[in-house]
């Protein structure tokens, strides 16, 4: 039981962080704070993915010399050319001497982080435009202004229809 909990405590901590980010995004009326909450949420999801790729006793997925067969540091080029592949019997699958962590989630999260900052700045650009149009970046105030304008437009339309019919 203790082992079961210990193995999953990391997940639970990450889920707690995730929920704090989600809570900030939900509860904050300030749009910038909301975006910061979203970016925390995103960072923590990356943490979750990367924690799935961890292998006990493993190291970073950069091959060590023992796992590069026919590697010769003196000849930087052609270290494992077609000849090496022939010598290995045409077998592409090399047996690993060391344990490495899973590289696939790393790749996915690496690109996700860079795309995340690009989308974050897109959201910030929209917020800057909202501030210029409404004079505020509080979501509820923006909503109030929207409702006011809609009501005023409706009144105007009703007046126009009345004038046209009169």
């Amino acid at each position: 039981m203790v082992e079961f909990v210990l193995e999953r405590a990391g997940y639970w901590a990450i889920i707690g962080l995730m929920m704090i980010g989600l809570y900030i995004a939900f509860s904050a009326e300030n749009l910038i704070k909301r975006l910061v909450g979203l970016s925390i949420f995103q960072t923590t999801i990356c943490l979750f993915y990367v924690s799935l790729s961890k292998v006990n006793g493993g190291t970073a997925p950069i091959l060590l010399p023992e796992d590069m067969p026919y590697y010769d540091a003196a000849i930087p080029k052609g270290t494992s050319g077609p000849d090496a592949l022939l010598a290995a019997g045409g077998e592409r699958f090399a047996d690993l001497y060391h344990i490495y962590s899973n590289p696939l989630p790393h790749v996915l999260m690496l690109t996700a982080i860079v795309v995340g900052v690009a989308t974050l700045s897109l959201g910030l650009a929209l917020i800057v435009r909202i501030r210029e149009a409404y004079g505020t970046i509080e979501a509820d105030e923006v909503r109030d202004i929207d409702i006011e304008t809609a009501l005023a437009q409706e009144l105007e339309q009703a007046k126009e229809i009345k004038e046209a019919s009169a």
Binding site: L63, L85, R92
Partner: peptide, 8 residues
Amino acid sequence: TYLQVNWF
């Protein structure tokens, strides 16, 4: 698989 195949 990526780890094993990558070098060759």
